[in-house]
Amino acid sequence: MAERAEASLLARVRPGRGARVAAVLRRLAAMPARDPFAFAGLTIYAAFVLVALFADLLASNPPLEIVFTKAGRLAANLPPSAEFPLGTTNLGRDIYAQLVFGTRSALAVGLSAAIVVASVGTIVGLVAGYFGGWFDTVLMRIADMALSLPFLPFVVVLTGFLGASTWNIVLAVALLLWPNSARVIRSQVLTVRERAYIEAARVTGARPWRILFIHVAPNILPLSFVYGAIAIGWAIITEAGISFLGFGDSTSVSWGYMLQDAFSSQALSRGQYHWFGPPGICIMLIVVAGFFISRGYEEVFIPKLRD
């Protein structure tokens, strides 16, 4: 009964769901022209996803296999050639293959961290912002605390002592990044809960959790999305840094592993730019894509930012 009343009230004070979805879709469709940055970001993501999916087809050598030249000699420190587009490492491994397979671990780290950060940040932000009270105070104090931990040193200590696994890196990144999204989402919730249709839903006696998830949550999902996109980049950069420091997962080939390998094998003094250049550029591209998208989506979903 309360829900029926709520629905009829909502129908009057709030545009229909269909109309809103259509409006968002229209804005999304107009994005390439209106916001070339966001479009470029999405294109970069799509390209990396395709590379990760078809890594086996794109690279013929397994990334850690030691390869030999046709003459049967160890193919070490080869410059780029038709057979090895980016040359080989000092131990005779195919750099191009490492780069291609590295995409997989980069996306795995980035996406899992993004999902954890976005979901934890969203739930905490929603609950803290909507219900307030001591719960809010405690959660925000914890967030403050997490933000005053030095980021990279914390990850170093955690992965260094807990063991070098991708999951520990994701865990560390998530532990330190959720407060950012939680805070912003909380303040967004604080404004959303004052809107007329939320008020209307409250007046008609809808249950708080229902209001929270049916009416408030959809409004802040775009923000979760933005923070997820930002977390992808952070996680990938952090994984690279940790691998570079030697605390990475040694069983999987990541871009950070490649950089560490190149650094410790004197690739710098030998001027092997084709070795340590590409992984850095890939990391940069994927992080920039995140920046571009968060910028673009902010404009699509939070129109007040448009000038």
Partner: peptide, 26 residues
């Protein structure tokens, strides 16, 4: 603006590696 964004996106140690190879070793 895209160049600045790119400089923010590059891993710090990688910038160091490139500078080291270029300005020191080369």
């Amino acid at each position: 603006v895209p160049i600045v964004l790119a400089s923010r996106a590059a891993p710090e140690f990688w910038i160091g590696m490139v500078l080291l190879a270029l300005l020191s070793f080369n």
